[in-house]
Every structure is written in C-alpha cells, then in structure tokens.
Design a protein around this nucleic acid. Structure first.
Lengths: 172, 172
DNA sequence: AGACTCATGTAAGTCGTTACATGATTAC
DNA sequence: GTAATCATGTAACGACTTACATGAGTCT
C-alpha cells in the first residue's frame, strides 16, 4: 500500500483536490495514515500521466487555480486490484514509545513530562475522534465505524495506561 | 528519532551484534518500531566511523565473524542528547486500517477475510506480548512495563472491536 | 501586526526497503 | 531433503519529508 492507493480510495467517492486530500489525511486518517503535500502533489501528477485520474482546473479570484481530480475507469480498476492484493504489515515508528522504553536513562522528571504530554495529546485525539463519531455516525459505513471505534479504544487504552503508569512512577 | 537513536539505546545496556539488534526489534519493539538488516548494518558502519560505537570481531567456526558493537562516551552523549530533543509524532501506516476504511468497495466476504486474519494476527501478537510480560516482569524497568501494558491493551482493544465488528457485519 | 486558511508546486536530501550474495550447522 | 538459524553485507531503487517559493483573504 502506497499513498497512491489511499488517494484512489478517497477519489472513489467524489472528485477532490490535493488540498482536500491533505485535509482528509489530517481529519480522518491521522491515526493510521498520513502524507505530506510533498507526497500528494507529485503523486497526483504521476497518476494523471498514467491515466488513473483526470484533472479539472477551476479559476478562483485571489487564490491559485484549484485542481480537482476525478478517478477514471483505469483508476477504479487499479484500486480494486489493490484491494485484492496481500495485506501489508503495519509500519509503526513511535518516538514516544521508544523513549518510554529507554526511560531509565532519562531524569524521572523528564519522563514524567513526556508522559504528561502523552496524556494531553491522547486526550486531544480522543476528543477529536469522539466528535467525529458523533458528527458522522449516520454517514459512515459499518467498516468506517469500526475504524473509528478502534481509534477511540486504542487511545482510551493508552490514556488509562499512562495515567496509571505516571501515578506509579511518581509514587516510587 | 532515527534507527540510530534506537540502536544507541540498545547499546546503552550491553554490547551486541547487528543480528542481535534485529532480534530485539522483532522481539521487543515490533509493535512500535522496526528496521531491516538493510538499515541496521549500514547504520552500524556509519556510527562506527563517527566514533559513536566501536567494533570487536569474534571469529567463529562454520559461521561468519560476529561483530559486536560497544557504545563509546561520544555515543552515550549522543543518546542523552536524543532524549533531550523534542518528541516526534508517531508515524503510522496501517494497510489493514486503510482497507477497513474503504471496505465498502470490497466484497463482504473479502472484508470478513481481512478481519478474520486481523483477529488471528492480533491474537498472536497478544499471546507473544503476554508471554514476554510473564517472562521478563522482574527484569523490566517500570517504564518498560508500561510499554508492554500499552501494547497489550492496544491489541486487546483491537481484538474486541474486530470481534464485535465482524459479528455485526455478518448479521447485516 | 500577526497568524491562519486556502492553494499548488519543486528540489534536495534522507531514510529505508527489497533482493541479492554467501554458507555452515542444526532440527525435523 | 528442506527449512530454519546464525551471520554479515551491498546495490538498486523507492517513497517520503522538509524547506522553499508564492500570495491574496480573513480573523483577532
């Protein structure tokens, strides 16, 4: 799975711009995928050249042209082929977990700061995901709801462990 | 955080080989970091050149020389500096979650297969983590135990959601 | 005055993976 | 006999990020 596959997935439903794709990554996907503009724009150009998508430019006043991309038959075929391919293992690189793992080499105060920041961020993500769940629960597909629920319960689990852990470490 | 930082972390405790580093990644870190030999060996070479680590070769019969690396003062300094740096956001790319998200474009039978495979893998990971917890609970540092607990409860959360989700989808 | 949003794009560089190459030993 | 384990390393390639470049409009 590359960014191309995810972009094709987004375009299956409706035609959107590179900017919209980035918004989707941040809003809907942040807890299981992300990509920067430096990936999105060149990938879209390549996909257009390969005939997977087509571009329509809309002139806007006071803003650059907005390029809206539409998936082609070839693009739909490519996406369905991706769905048939082998599932790849998840790639995870968590700096936070690495630090926690090697925490014994840090000052206790530093580790507590990491954990407090971790708690804050997790609470933030959790609030965002719960809002989304409330907001979109009627529009989302059954499997999208499962995604959201996984995201929420993952974050709940992290939060509980960090809160318990921080209390424990402070008590030593 | 790059692989270099994680490798330094491992060497803080004891001198090990590239092969051992890979073992550690698979055994201890798999749910929050991983790196291939193609990363590990060239990184070790570079680190040696930069004076962060030193190499000792041990001749073995019927096997290639075993290169055991030891962290230097400079390496220890570099690791402590890493601990002082800003925490980076986790990078996650989960093919499984992407497929779940776009599941409505797949045959229901295919999605159920994905979820069943997801359940199987999650159960496997969970078993592995629980064994580790049992086996190492007296040796691991408090923060390493928190890591393990986060890993375990994350996987428990995923498992519960998938089981519930699959039942729900099958009932439609 | 400053920050943020909308909007696209490129260039340089980093980082990492996959596949290849080698080869004895051991367990099933 | 075949798969796995131990053990190291390189070359080719791919994918992605960061920083740069541009610039009007809007909100505080």
């Amino acid at each position: 799975m590359r960014s191309q596959d995810v972009i094709l997935g987004m375009l299956m439903d409706s035609s959107i711009s590179g900017y919209d794709i980035k918004q989707n990554f941040e809003k809907l996907f942040s807890y299981f995928y992300n990509a920067s503009y430096g990936t999105i724009y060149p990938t879209l150009s390549r996909m257009e050249k390969e005939g997977l998508i087509t571009k329509q430019s809309f002139v806007q006043e006071g803003k650059p042209n907005k390029n809206v991309y539409t998936i082609t038959q070839l693009g739909r075929k490519a996406f369905l082929e991706y769905l048939q391919s082998e599932i790849q293992n998840a790639e995870v690189k968590s700096d936070f977990m690495i630090r926690l793992f090697f925490g014994k080499w840090a000052e206790p105060a530093l580790m507590i700061r990491w954990m407090e920041e971790g708690i804050r961020k997790t609470e933030e993500t959790l609030a965002k995901l719960r809002t989304e769940q409330e907001q979109w629960k009627d529009e989302l597909s059954p499997s999208q709801l499962i995604c959201l629920r996984i995201g929420i319960s993952n974050n709940e689990a992290v939060l509980a462990n960090l809160q318990e852990g921080i209390a424990q470490i402070k008590s030593i």
